[in-house]
Structure formats: C-alpha cells, structure tokens
Computed example of a mutant assay.
Amino acid sequence: MPADKQPIPSVWARPRPKREQPALSRDRIVSEAIQLLDTEGIEALSMRSLGTRLGAGATSLYRHVANKDELIELVVDEVYGEMRVPDAGDPAHWRAAVTDAARSLRSMVLRHPWIVSVLGQVGLAYLGPNLMRQSERLLALFQAAGFAPGEADQAMKALIAYVIGMTTSEAAYLSMLARSGQNEQDWLESLRPAAEQAARDHPLVRHGYTEQLVKEPAQIREETFDYGVERILDGLETRLSPKAATR
C-alpha cells in the first residue's frame, strides 16, 4: 500500500484472520459483547471490560478485532441478522410483506436499544453480511411489487429511515423506563396529573390524551408505528402503475 494511503477503518474492509484461537473466536467475542450491551448498555462496553468477561486480556481481543469501532460494526451486523424479511412472493401481497419486515426491524431495535446510539458510528455497516442480505431481500420485495431497481432502493431507504427514526425515540423511552424500575402503566399513571395540567389550555391535545387513556401503552405505540408504515406505503403505492398497485 502506498505510504500516502491509509487503510479503510472498517472490519469489513480487511481480511478476516485466517487462524483463530479455538477458545476465543471472533464469533464468541461478538456474542459476549452483545450480552454486555443488552444488560449494561453502551457505556459499559470497552475492550478491557469485554476481555474481563471473556477471561482474556484486551491484547488477546485485538488479535480478532482491531479496535472498539470494529467491534461496534460487528455487533450491529450481528443483531441485524435477527431481522426477518419475507420472501418476495405474490406481488399482490407486497405491502403485507414489507410491513412484516418493518415490524421485525422495530422489534430488533427494541430488543437491543443500545443500537440507536451507535448507528452513526458504524463505518461501513452496509458491507456487513447480515445487513447486505437483509437489503437484498427488501429490494426483492420492492422490485417484485413493480418498482424499478433504482426506485426500489430509494423506497427501501425511506422505509428504513422511518423505522429507525421512530424506534430511536421509542427505545430511549423504554430505556428510561427500565432505569426507573417502573412498568409503563405505573409510570404513565404517575405522570397523569402533570400531563392533564399541561394540556389544560390546549383542547386538541387534551382530547387526544383523553382518548389514549383507555388503551394499553404498548398498543398505542404499536398503532402509532403501524400508522406511519401504512402512510409511507400509501405514498409509495402511488408510484406504481394501476396494474401493479394491488394490495
């Protein structure tokens, strides 16, 4: 490599080590890192803390993962493997399939809420094998529906942007609840007097708030998410020819 060129700082841009110590593989490092993140959060993750959990020194980890940034790339791609994207089958059912994929992505983020705080620092995440596979399957759904390849890519990105945007705030809210030690219903009940006072002089807000009191909080979050997905798909469907725009 020429002296004036620096290596691309991504785990996906360099060869995987050909030989790994049986007791400390990259897969084991990633699995343990995800467990640490799920239980203690992103603030607790360091090469030293991970090495301690694995019973190995940080130096041993560096044989498999160059630095913490590479580790983040690996764990993000690993959890993207949990996402489920249906096969591209009957074009008439493309909306249901895309909706299922969007819900699966939301569920993945809510299982691993720390992911929303690292999505801006994952380098070449799109080169990861799981994210690449999920992108391929989503693109197949949109193309089967009748979108041209270029617009299928734009449609996929619009959907993912919506899901990540919605689940970022939802994951932060649920993480706050977890730290409080209260369940969602109890938390909202404790906030009710303050919320009613704040909405007293705002009748439209007060009406919406009153209507939501009769529903389970989780149901409200799911309905809000699904409403956004449906409206995005409504807009995308107008881009299809009348023949292809079947549900």
Rank of each mutant, 00 (worst) to 15 (best):
E78S: 13
A155L: 08
A3H: 14
M47V: 00
V229D: 05
L124K: 08
A244K: 08
Y80D: 12
A13L: 02
V30T: 13
I220V: 15
D153P: 04
S49H: 07
R239Q: 15
S31W: 11
P91H: 10
P149L: 03
D38N: 13
L71H: 08
K18S: 11
D226S: 10
P22V: 06
K18V: 12
M108A: 11
V214G: 09
A140K: 08
A88M: 01
P7F: 05
G89W: 00
I232L: 15
A145K: 05
L61K: 03
E43I: 09
D186R: 03
E223W: 11
E189P: 06
D153V: 11
L159K: 09
L177R: 09
A92I: 14
A172Q: 13
T59V: 11
S25H: 11
E136M: 06
A161I: 00
R63V: 05
P91S: 07
L36S: 14
I160Q: 12
Q134I: 10
Q134H: 10
L36K: 14
I42P: 03
A145P: 02
W114K: 06
D77S: 07
G120M: 03
A198E: 04
L127A: 15
I220C: 04
H64A: 15
A140T: 01
P217L: 08
S175F: 04
R14P: 00
A172E: 11
S169W: 15
L236M: 13
I160C: 09
E230C: 12
I8V: 07
A218M: 12
L61S: 02
Y173R: 09
P86I: 01
N67C: 00
R48K: 12
T39D: 15
S135W: 02
Q6H: 10
A96H: 06
A161T: 14
I115R: 00
V75A: 06
P17A: 05
R111I: 03
P193H: 02
R84E: 01
G123V: 05
Q35H: 15
A161Y: 04
L24S: 03
Y209P: 08
E230Q: 15
P17Q: 02
S175L: 05
A194I: 07
R111W: 06
R111T: 00
K157S: 14
Q212L: 12
A152I: 00
A144W: 01
Q185Y: 06
S180M: 09
D27Y: 06
G165P: 01
M132W: 12
M156F: 14
P9L: 09
P2K: 12
A96I: 05
E230W: 10
E82K: 05
L141N: 11
A155H: 06
E196W: 00
A13C: 08
N130P: 07
A66D: 14
R231W: 04
L240M: 05
A195H: 01
R16K: 13
G235T: 09
T167Q: 04
T246H: 14
A172S: 10
A195D: 00
I42H: 08
E184L: 04
A194F: 07
L233Y: 05
T167D: 08
S135K: 02
S46Q: 03
T238Y: 14
H93C: 14
W187V: 02
K215F: 15
